[in-house]
Design a protein around this nucleic acid. Structure first.
Length: 481
RNA sequence: GGCGCCAUGGUCAAGCGGUUAAGACAUCACCCUUUCACGGUGGUAUCACGGGUUCGAUUCCCGUUGGCGUCACCA
């Protein structure tokens, strides 16, 4: 049987990182087995409609390079792939009525007030379980209610004794008492199915073989299985994934600022890096490697190695991984990403390509660039104590002396290539019995005003040119006076 | 609160009855060096606790503790 997996997000307007990982795993399972990966939009909550939300989903999948084989935008043999459109085809209501006929579901006319009265407050949370009140309605009552147009929902009719056992390929066999199984709503009073119901129906109709989802669905899975069993359908393979949490072991939220794919992109993280990183959150390959592209992932992905315990989303490591990705970028592609950030900081007519190459090994995200290079544009006021440096055994007085001498030297240099500048200055150092590092220190400070720079003194001089170099050294001497 | 799941360093994690308990991020030290970074070398740091089972438990079982999830006409 061909492996078929699906990604079934509800259109919320942004892509939660945990969701993306679920999509990734579903994709990898399908592709590792030469199967199909499909996209289905679960928009059965009319109150939560967000305009443009499905576009976010398409865009994310595209950027992450997770190509689906079937979906609303590209069609397929099992459409429609948007649940609200399937509602129009009456798919869910028909199946729900079948269940009613089989005695596996029933009409419920309970009012909101009655339902509320069933709720109990425990630790500030309201919890409730339906009491099967409407299960006892006579046929006549039901028909009367229906005829009068009284609003109704359809509930699943679950047993109250015995146990249900289900199997998950990650968590193993899980056994629950049937009295834990609430008579969940299948069809809402607006005629739309709930997620719980639509999901089961569609997964079956779309011939999904492996269901990949977050483990928050673990506790409702036995109810889904009773649905499959009622219809006599094959139960798919369940693959529940552990949660991704923030550093406080709480669910990743918008507040942490790193909950969504879009946030991460806006921080200057590369999409392929995000994909690589989240693959490692809750899964590890058999080989001891951790940097790989999607193709390699498809090759080595063994879903049985998905772990059971939650993973903390470590921004630190993501940034490190991103720096590795940046270093491995070809110059062309690197420039394409980096240039907008260079432009943010540099307006003067400087060699931006050269500046870009300076920072390539020194940034973790592209957002780091402007701050690191803005001194090329102009020197901000800086602390004069920078001219004192222990390691190079230099103080302000000596710095000033060096700068005054070097100023005269540089005035007579016309070839401002990095190579020539370095030769001239290191020769000067030798002749005057000064260590090269010590000589370069005050020059670099004078040219940048920064303790740390993404380039050495002569590289900076080369980029800003002779006139600017001379000016900056003159200014430095003034400051030191 | 009921039920369910989980538990190896600060973090991601390998391990699947006998190991000096891998590797990576972070951190620290040193080397390299025209500063920083990159790169290189090395160090610190982990099996939650208590009982079993066993010749032997990080590994298997039970309990405790802790964390998470779930208990909606949300998905």
């Amino acid at each position: 049987m061909k492996v078929r997996t699906r990604f079934a997000p509800s259109p919320t307007g942004y892509m939660h990182i945990g969701n993306l990982r679920t999509a990734l795993y579903a994709y990898l399972i399908a592709k590792h087995n030469n199967g199909d990966f499909l996209l289905r939009i679960e928009d059965t909550d009319k109150n939560r409609e967000v305009v443009g939300a499905t576009d976010v989903i398409y865009k994310t999948l595209k950027l992450a390079n997770l190509k689906h084989d079937e979906g609303p935008d590209i069609g397929g043999n099992y459409g429609p792939y948007i649940q609200s459109e399937r509602v129009k085809n009456n798919i869910y209501m028909e199946f729900a009525k079948k269940l009613v006929d089989m005695g596996k579901a029933y009409y419920c006319f309970c009012s909101e007030e009655r339902l509320n009265s069933l709720k109990k407050e425990i630790n500030g949370e309201f919890i409730s379980m339906y009491d099967k009140h409407c299960l006892n309605l006579s046929k006549e009552e039901i028909e009367k209610n229906l005829k009068e147009g009284k609003p109704f929902v359809i509930r699943q009719n679950n047993p109250t004794d015995g146990k249900t056992i289900f199997h998950d390929d990650i968590y193993g066999d899980i056994e629950v008492n049937n009295n834990e199984l609430d008579d969940m709503i299948l069809i809402k009073s607006d005629g739309y199915p709930t997620y719980n119901f639509a999901n089961v129906i569609d997964d079956h109709l779309m011939k999904i073989t492996h269901i990949v989802r977050g483990n928050e669905y673990l506790s409702s899975t036995p109810k889904y299985n009773r649905l499959y069993e009622a219809f006599g359908w094959d139960i798919p393979v369940y693959i529940h994934c552990p949660p991704i949490t923030d550093e406080n072991h709480k669910k990743l939220s918008k507040r942490t600022g790193s909950a969504s794919f879009e946030d991460l992109l806006s921080f200057g993280i590369l999409p392929e890096c995000i994909v690589n990183f989240i693959a490692l959150l809750g899964w590890s390959p058999n080989e001891n490697i951790e940097i790989f592209d999607l193709k390699k992932m498809v090759e080595i992905f063994d879903y049985k190695r998905i772990s059971k315990s939650p993973a903390v989303f470590d921004m630190n490591k993501l940034k490190w991984l991103n720096s590795e990705y940046i270093k491995n970028l070809s110059d062309d592609i690197y420039l394409k990403y980096a240039m907008p950030f260079i432009d943010k900081a540099i307006n003067k007519n400087l060699d931006k390509k050269k500046i870009a190459s300076f920072v390539k090994t020194r940034i973790e995200t592209f957002n780091d660039i402007p701050e690191k290079i803005k001194f090329f544009e102009f020197v901000s006021p800086y602390d004069i104590n920078l001219y004192e440096n222990k390691k190079n055994k230099i103080d302000k007085i000596e710095s000033k002396n060096i700068l005054e001498k070097i100023l005269e030297v540089l005035k007579n240099v016309d070839d401002f290539s990095n190579e020539n500048l370095f030769n001239v200055l290191s020769n000067f150092a030798k002749e005057n019995d000064i260590k090269v590092g010590k000589l370069m220190w005050p020059i670099r400070i004078a040219l940048s005003g920064c303790e740390n720079t993404p380039a050495g003194a002569t590289e900076i001089a080369n980029v800003i040119g002779k006139d600017e170099t001379i000016n900056r050294i003159k200014n430095a001497i003034n400051i030191l006076n």
